[in-house]
Write a protein that binds this DNA or RNA. Structure first.
Length: 634
RNA sequence: GCCAAUAUAGCUCAGUUGGUAGAGCAGCGGUUUCGUAAACCGCAGGUCAAGGGUUCGAGUCCCUUUAUUGGCUCCA
């Protein structure tokens, strides 16, 4: 038998397992073998290999091995919970990004104290070091097996698997679970784990189903790695935009307005700069700006379909006995703007953008700082065009979004969502629309994932996701094709044939919502915004009051040149003033003492802690202007 | 909305088995004029989220409501 290892061919005796081979290679491996990839597929280490194959031994450094480790940990978790609460019914327990969870149906919700007990029980199981043993059962026996153990969720899982699917089970100690595998060889390999939280979670993710109790945890190769991870989480919390918003005096959400954010003066500076930038790039990209009313009458919302399908999320009111609704979306207003005149194919595409303030009554439990609010400003635009223009237009929007995200240095993920079950429109229209989006992505050679059936009922969409400090992703940009509203509002343009045609409409946002984008921005830069966005760009710090006059003059000169400058003339030590400016993450501090006054220069310090040295104000201005003009990320 | 936890000064947090509410920072008043992340002294600041209950007595125990946090669902 010849096994091709990752780094070349090796011959081994027949019937050896990957574990045996790993043992033989232990000198070379240096790291502990966790699982193996045989001919590309992940498998357990202990399974005998009796054929020629390509073998790769994975260590904890491999992401796939980490998933196997965490999945194994979830089995240990389930075993521990069953031991402590034999009546708990098992649902599912997968590995997830950075950890794992297991869902249980229990009579009483779990408590934090119980979590401590479970951790102790898990530690006992790990010490016992039970081997994982896999076996398969025919369908009927598998169902009977789980019925006998009173595991209705497992029975349901089996019943929903395809008829011919192999039904594999894994047993460690006295615990057996339905599972596709693979696992580590034994429970003892789960060395460093921690249960992190308890949460309610609906069975199969549907709120129509029963809510189960979920336990989250994480596991690492060793304690050092686990501690490093927990440390990283603590550090990430310091970047939380909710915390920084308050500390840097940018924005906050008060109990008096759940989901309705306040922007304070400094936050408003940041916000206005973003909006200025937005206007500039949209002007360059051929958009015209409009503004539509925040509140419109019921008839409009009935025609758009929102009254019937979105009313639960809308704030409504009655004026002069007529129903009105505050807009949850800008599109109906944008459509009324389109309808103000007759359109020729020569005028298309028509791109009109709007920084539109929308209100949505989101579920209270969904609110999250600036990331999920109940009133927010979408940097919306609606583009009306002929079907032939779809592909190029989508490409244009994509490039615009890409350009903006690159300006901020944001990595992003692209997802294409296709036709859902409750879709309207013909197969033909969906095929055309989906091809338009997919074609554009393919033309641009963009990596993307497909969310089958996750599109809006009115059309497919491309979503752009950005990460927050804890790695949670938030949808920001989106490009959505709409095959519904043009019909409902009977939108037309006149073609070269003199006949009326239906335009294709897309909704798109680049930043998504100004609020969410500011949240992402704040976490990404940990509050240390690039110079061009910093609410305060420069702070002048004096050492004694003999420098006050020059300090005021320096500030006046910088302000006159458009640099946002603050002055600290307080009777405090320079260390104290530096510390404060530093904590406010002000990009440049100008220290002025007797020496600087005499030489008519400023001593420049950055928020990174570097002292650049002295220079005259003109040279400083030159440097600042350069950085601002290029929107340098630093 | 659902599951769980939490709510004490502007901020970060103490507050023991129920017995008159505390610290640091920030603020204000002084002293100090100082060289790159915290000078010193003093003062003031709270209907303990709101409402109800148990008790001689509630920040502390119970109930309701509100908000927040972590998830689920939903979504920019």
């Amino acid at each position: 038998m010849i096994i091709t290892l990752k780094d070349g061919k090796r011959e081994f005796a027949n019937g050896l397992s990957a574990l045996d081979i790993a043992g033989q290679l232990s000198q070379e491996l240096k790291k502990q073998a966790i699982c193996a990839r045989v001919d590309g597929a992940i498998t357990e280490l202990w399974k005998p290999i009796d054929h020629d194959c390509a073998l790769e031994i994975l260590t904890f450094e491999d992401d796939e091995a980490k998933r196997v480790l965490r999945h194994t940990a979830s089995h240990v978790l389930a075993q521990a919970v069953k031991k402590l609460k034999p009546n708990a019914k098992l649902a599912i327990g997968p590995a997830i990004e950075n950890g794992f969870y297991y869902d249980f149906d229990v009579d009483e919700p779990f408590t934090p104290d119980f979590l401590v007990d479970v951790e102790k029980e898990m530690a006992r199981i790990v010490i016992k070091n039970d081997r994982f043993e896999g076996f398969e059962l025919p369908r009927a026996e598998a169902i009977q097996f789980m019925q006998e153990r009173n595991e209705p969720y497992k029975v349901q899982l089996i019943e929903d698997l395809p008829e011919d699917a192999p039904l594999s089970f894994y047993k460690q100690g006295d615990f057996t679970d339905l599972c596709a595998g693979p696992h580590l060889p034994s429970t003892g390999k789960v060395k460093a784990f921690k249960l992190t939280s308890i949460a309610g979670a609906y069975w199969r993710g549907s709120e129509k189903n029963k809510m189960l109790q979920r336990i989250y945890g994480t596991a690492f190769a060793d304690k050092a790695e686990l501690d490093a991870y927990l440390q990283r989480i603590e550090e990430a919390k310091k970047r939380d935009h909710r915390r920084l918003g308050r500390e840097l005096d940018l924005f906050d959400i008060r109990d008096e307005g759940p989901g309705f954010p306040f922007f304070y003066p400094k936050g408003m500076v940041l916000r206005n700069l973003l909006e200025d930038y937005w206007r500039q790039i949209h002007h360059e990209a051929g958009y015209e700006e409009i503004k539509t009313p925040i509140m419109l009458n019921r008839a409009l919302w009935e025609r758009s379909g929102h009254w019937d399908h979105y009313k639960d999320n809308m704030y409504t009111t009655k004026i002069d006995d007529m129903d009105f609704a505050i807009k949850p979306m800008n599109c109906p207003g944008g459509i009324l703007v389109y309808q103000r005149k007759l359109w020729s194919y020569r005028d298309l595409p028509c791109r009109s953008g709007e920084l539109g303030l929308v209100h949505r009554h989101e579920l209270s439990g969904a609110l999250h700082g600036l990331m999920r609010v109940r009133c927010f400003t979408q940097d919306d635009a609606h583009i009306f065009m002929t079907p032939e223009q779809i592909r190029d237009e989508i490409k244009g929007v994509y490039r615009l979004i890409d350009k903006v995200y690159q300006t901020f240095g944001f990595p992003y993920k692209v997802e294409l969502s296709t036709r859902p079950e409750n879709a309207i429109g013909t197969d033909e229209m969906w095929a055309l629309a989906t091809e338009g989006l997919q074609g554009a992505l393919d033309d641009l050679a963009v990596p993307y994932t497909i969310n089958e059936g996750d599109g809006a009922f009115y059309g497919p969409k491309i979503d752009f996701h950005l990460e927050d400090s804890l790695g949670r992703t938030w949808q920001c940009g989106t490009i959505q094709l709409d095959m519904n509203l043009p019909e409902r509002f009977d939108l037309t343009y006149t073609g070269p044939d003199g006949e009326k045609h239906r335009p294709v409409m897309i909704h798109r946002v680049v930043l998504g919502s100004i609020e969410r984008f500011i949240g992402i921005l704040t976490e990404h830069f940990a509050g240390a915004f690039p110079l061009w966005l910093a609410p305060v760009q420069v702070k002048v710090l004096t050492i004694t009051d003999r420098c006050d006059e020059m300090a005021k003059a320096v500030r006046a000169k910088l302000e006159a040149a458009g640099i946002r400058t603050e002055l600290d003339l307080r009777n405090e030590k320079i260390g104290f003033k530096v510390r404060e400016a530093q904590m406010m993450k002000i990009p440049y501090m100008l220290v002025l003492g007797d020496k600087e006054v005499e030489d008519q220069v400023v001593n420049v310090r950055t928020r990174k802690g570097d002292t650049i040295g002295t220079m005259n104000v003109d040279a400083l201005l030159e440097m600042l202007k350069q950085q601002i003009a290029t929107k340098a990320l630093q």
